[in-house]
Design a protein around this nucleic acid. Structure first.
Lengths: 227, 227
DNA sequence: CCTCGTCCGATTGTATATGATTTGTTATAC
DNA sequence: GTATAACAAATCATATACAATCGGACGAGG
């Protein structure tokens, strides 16, 4: 019988460490990732760190230029727009595909999360709001039988993760709308609506966030994405 | 003035070399990629090769297991189904998004390609048929303003590339249908149809290929994907 | 004949060392 | 003051060497 290696490979260690730093917000977009420094920090050589960074590059979390170095990927405005647009498509499809498997319990759970989101609006807790939003959609997605698609959705979320709380903080009023739209999606699912309707509703939910952003952009003439 | 490095990095070289071998069909799915052997072949050390393989792994072209090694990724049946399903969604959206930018010349070019595809059916040239099919859809996609989405489509194609000519050879009759459906999509584009109609037509085009496969599977009780 | 344990060859995993490239700095000329 | 050239420091890129690990061959025991 083959057993898993007792110790995780240092490459793996480096990968998860850097990734968690990025996702946790300790390494902000644009932050320079110096191979030697990270290697020293983790007490490993540069080779595994290099490998980890290459993997993160392939996933789109960092950019890497030869003889210059790596840095945490930044989303510029067009990157934000395209990612949001892609996500609207992926999420719409994922929701549609998982619809047949959604249980009453799932819907109740999602509704509870949505209620908490409403509370966050009262208490002005944008960070938690974002977390709950992810949780809400996760409930709707997790039954999706297409792992491939689900993986793409998660990647998109990770890219956007760099713009923590952007919805909440940069587009006033959008969060309230968002909570209302969630309820709309839930009732469609509850009533066994046509799958195309569900897909388009889920898609429109994100599209409207994007539209709100675009409109806000045009009226305020500055880029909240790239400060 | 800064100039690009005179020589491509050996990591990059290894990456493109392995990749081309896979895409060219020299390295078939399941083929074992031994670091040392490839390094020797390319006259580089194992470090860049290793890095290249990690990148390919992140892209899904190869699988890599610790202390065991890498091999060209294989699509099992569920992998094939999910990839096809995901592609149907991505391609549908990509076609829909590029529709407004498609010119008359594009449509003429696509139609010419489709005519050549029909010829391939006469001459029974499955390899060329597959190539042309890719070219046909590329014409429809290339105007898509969302590079992110386009990239996902290309990745999907690459995954399926491992099942070269599968449509043609494994599901008799499907190819003829496919050519007819292409014309249907073209006429929708030509007549400026509703964008949702275009999207759903493009999506259905691939879905039907998948359905044909599934049906063929169930009647023949064997797996053409994993011989 | 089958099962389990041990050894050996093959292969991957990592550290270290050295070379190559870029970037920043300083000095000098105009 | 500006521009340019030469130098220095930081960092990446790769080769080599060795350690860790795995898979299968082989033989002992049941």
């Amino acid at each position: 019988m083959t057993v898993a290696p007792a110790t995780r490979s240092k490459s793996e260690l480096s990968y998860t460490w850097i990734r968690s730093k990025i996702e946790g917000g300790a390494f902000v977009p644009g932050y320079r990732l110096v191979l030697g420094a990270i290697a020293k920090e983790l007490d490993v050589s540069v080779v595994p760190v290099r490998e980890a960074i290459r993997r993160l590059e392939a996933e789109g979390l960092v950019t890497f230029e030869r003889n210059v170095g790596a840095q945490v990927a930044m989303l510029n405005e067009t990157g934000y727009v395209t990612t949001m647009q892609t996500l609207s498509i992926l999420e719409g499809a994922a929701t549609m595909l998982s619809a047949p498997f959604i249980t009453d319990e799932d819907i109740a759970a999602a509704r509870a999360v949505n209620a908490n989101m409403a509370d966050c609006l009262e208490n002005f807790d944008p960070h938690r709001f974002t977390e709950l939003n992810r949780e809400f959609h996760s409930i709707l997605f997790e039954r999706c039988p297409n792992d491939n698609l689900l993986d793409l959705v998660h990647r998109g979320w990770n890219s956007l993760n760099m713009l923590r709380d952007s919805t909440f903080s940069f587009v006033p009023g959008r969060a309230h709308q968002s909570v209302a739209e969630h309820e709309g999606i839930l009732s469609l699912l509850e009533n066994g609506a046509d799958s195309l309707d569900i897909e388009l509703a889920a898609r429109a939910h994100r599209t409207r966030t994007l539209d709100a952003f675009t409109e806000y952009q045009s009226t305020h003439k500055r880029s909240p994405v790239q400060p």
